[in-house]
Every structure is written in structure tokens, then in C-alpha cells.
Amino acid sequence: MRVVFTRVDERLIHGQITIGWTNLTGTRLIMAVNDQVAGNSLQRNLLKMAAKPGVQVEILTMEEAKKKISEDAWDNTPVMVLVKNPIDLLALIKAGLKIGKVNVGGVRQPDASIVLTKEVKATEAELEAWKEIARLGYTIEVQFVPDQSITSLNKVLERF
């Protein structure tokens, strides 16, 4: 699996992904991983419509995604990995997903109370997951669209 872009974003596929990142990263396939979304036909259908035409969209449960990772699926196709929260991302990394930098969009669960940046809030469990991802050596950058400046989440996490 050739991952060209990894993003944590509560809205999965939306305008920033479609207009901002898809072409820029050369993405041909989007793997969006979320148990709840994958089990909901309405959400699956809408997310597929939201992607850019010509880009294949795979909306998978965590189990299905782990299987794809272990099979090393999709050969050389440039893949964009999308998850809703750092906990899911950490699980994928532990399942053997090879990624570069981690890009972060809006992440704010209703019950998240720890403020990391203007756009990123975390629950206790999410904070631990972020810290673990940073400890594993990944660069974590909050950046909505390519033309925006980057906020390093690694630096922010040092304070917690």
C-alpha cells in the first residue's frame, strides 16, 4: 500500500480534501476508516459522492482496513488515508500501516475538552493517542488547506 497522504479529520471527505489535497498529492484512492460510518449506507453513499470524480473511495471498518494493510492491497496506487480521530490512526499504525507525515484537519468530538489548537480538541484517550503517535516519531501538522501555514502538533503536545 503506497500511502501519499494521511489525515485525521472528523469530517473525513469534504471540501478541503476534494479541492485542497486530492490533486496536490496525486491521490487516486481514498481509504476512509471508521466503524460507524462504514456501517451506515447513507453516510457511505454521501462520502463517495463528495470525493473527486475519478478517485476510488473505500470506506472500511477497522477490521477491513487492517486486512487491506496486511494484504498490502492496491499495489502502487497512491492512497490517501483518512480517519476521524488519533485513536484510529494509532491502531492502523500498529497494524503495520506505513505513512509519512500526519496531517490534521478539524478534530473536536463534542465531549473533547482538552484544547490543543483552535481547531483541534481532544479527549483524554485522544490525547494519549496523539502523544503515542508523536513518540513513534511521526511529524504531526495541523493544516486545513495547502495554502495555510502549518501548526506543529508535536510542539503543542510537549506542553501536555
Binding site: E10, R11, L12, I13, H14, G15, Q16, I17, T18, I19, V37, N40, L42, Q43, L46, L47, M49, A50, A51
Partner: peptide, 11 residues
Amino acid sequence: SLMGPLAGIGD
């Protein structure tokens, strides 16, 4: 669940 995809389609 609706706000993200609708934003993607609309944008």
C-alpha cells in the same frame, strides 16, 4: 455525518 460530505459535494 451529513455536514462533511455535503461540504465536499457543494465546495
